[in-house]
């Protein structure tokens, strides 16, 4: 279970690998409750990020997961919910 826990640092790493970061995407600061769009990640970047999370963690994320969770905190929680369901079920 612990090895399947998804953290904000995991998300930052995957965001950077998949979409990169530039001056407008300040991944260094406290970003937990900042909207992805304000961090410079559009729907396409989130699609790529979702695909990478799915591959790495062996899960499937519904489209709504990426549409409904607009901040890093919300997305991290949604991914962990999914991981718990997979582990429990």
């Amino acid at each position: 279970m612990s090895e399947h826990h998804f953290t904000i640092d995991d998300l930052k790493r995957i965001l950077f690998e998949g979409a990169g970061a530039d001056e407008s995407a300040a991944l260094g600061g406290d970003i937990l409750d900042t909207d992805f769009e304000n961090l410079g990640y559009d729907s396409l970047a989130l699609l790529e990020t979702g695909g990478r999370i799915e591959r790495e963690y062996g899960i499937t994320l519904d489209d709504e997961v990426l549409n409904d969770n607009r901040t890093p905190r919300a997305l991290v929680e949604a991914v962990n919910d999914n991981l718990r369901r997979v582990a429990g079920g």
Binding site: G18, A19, G20, A21, D22, E23, S24, A25, G40, Y41, L44, A45, E48
Partner: peptide, 8 residues
């Protein structure tokens, strides 16, 4: 170009 654009 921004890195994000380079990746795509």
């Amino acid at each position: 170009l921004p890195v994000r654009l380079v990746r795509q």
